[in-house]
Design a protein around this nucleic acid. Structure first.
Lengths: 232, 232
DNA sequence: GAGTGGTCTAGACCACGGG
DNA sequence: CCGTGGTCTAGACCACTCG
């Protein structure tokens, strides 16, 4: 049994994608659609509401509904734990701590990234089948996450620990292609200046910075897949 | 007036993010929540349904609702038209066609990318404030999009034309960091082998390939921002 | 003012799946 | 079996905004 609101959603989606209803075109109002599909108004409203969330239509009171002019092309980026990313492909994951350093009085650079106050810096390497997969360089705000100080991160990466232990309310990710620094090249076993794929992630709990991570992959062996968002 | 279902959603979201309800913990059933918030059951169902879509909770009949164990970290990638991407920052956009070539009998490489049959290959450059911003190398399937043959793409990029004229039903994107090829380096005004940020996009209409595009940005001046998905 | 979307209620029926 | 989620209906009230 497929739900009526879903069937209606899919039918309308088809009319939009096929071009039957062009961008900018008006869509019948809820009452008419309800009559066409032989359901009540809240049911078509639900289907239309989903299309709004997917960015495919726009609605205004009195003015009615229209197919969105600029189809907002959006994609969803899955950001799994690095361990899962590797093990889900059936490969052997391993983790190695490189450095764990307390920064009691962080310099201006670190403070800009993660705020004043003590911070913990952790560098580590994640490997797949023994080959370097990701070099992680992370700052953790000890004011927000004091428990991090008791973690040695010898057997388990800060990534996994944070996900399990610390809630967060907001995150940003930035993706870039950069030349490998001397250290990154050494850790990843590639040439200095060779392309690396970098994910920079920052998270907050309320207004307090939690952590900032620079996740560096060898460009030659990494690509990130984004699946298109929307039509369920 | 903020909607009740939204207020309830936000309240429950707060309990999850704050850790009041830990991952894996059970959530009261709909009837109890309805009593707590003094609304009817469909209203809490709507709030819970949103949390499911956001990946924050999991629900099973009879078993009830739980906070999701592995918070699926996902981010939404906005993929605007290159023109908008530049003009939205208040910079001057310009476009230049480099090459337009009919491939009546495509070789095996092109066929693998976009299927058998005639194809159109278009190379062009997008600039911001006169500086190279994106080098685009695109294949268009003429069987699916015959109208493309009548376009000269002299004043307007294939990107924009396709968005306006051709619906599609499915798209994939892959992101990678690569060394610039000789041609890419020349077009972008960077050194051969320097890091470039590459977006590879393919779209389909039904089961028929529409287009495949390789969008190449100079790594030094480009980063892609992903905003976190979910709450809000 | 009137037409449209946005939401809520009260009640109902059903499907699923754990005990 | 039967508690839970999943959905739909019929009706209603309101808010917004265009003409």
């Amino acid at each position: 049994m497929t739900a009526k609101h879903r069937a209606i959603h899919d039918e309308l989606l088809g009319r939009i994608l096929s071009g039957t209803w062009a961008p900018g075109a008006a869509i019948p109002n809820e009452v008419d659609l309800a009559r066409e599909f032989e359901v009540t108004r809240p049911t078509v409203a639900r289907a239309l509401g989903e299309l709004v969330k997917e960015g495919l239509i726009e609605r205004r009171r009195r003015a009615g509904s229209r197919v969105a002019e600029r189809q907002s092309r959006e994609a969803v980026l899955s950001i799994p734990l690095v361990r899962r990313e590797i093990e889900d492909e059936g490969r052997v994951y391993a983790y190695r701590l490189i450095e764990r350093e307390m920064l009691a009085k962080p310099g201006p650079l670190v403070r800009a990234l993660i705020g004043p106050g003590a911070a913990l810096r952790v560098k580590c390497l994640h490997t797949a089948e023994g080959a370097p997969w990701q070099f992680e360089d992370r700052l953790i705000n000890l004011a927000t996450v004091p428990a991090a100080e008791r973690q040695d991160f010898r057997d388990r990466g800060p990534n996994e620990w944070l996900v399990d232990a610390i809630p967060f309310s907001r995150a940003t990710q930035a993706l870039s292609a950069e030349p490998a620094s001397a250290e990154e090249a050494r850790r990843l076993g590639i040439a200095e200046g060779a392309p690396v794929f970098v994910v920079t992630r920052r998270t907050w709990l309320g207004d307090d910075p939690v952590t900032q991570a620079r996740l560096v992959h060898p460009g030659a062996s990494y690509r990130l897949i984004a699946r298109d968002r929307g039509p369920g």
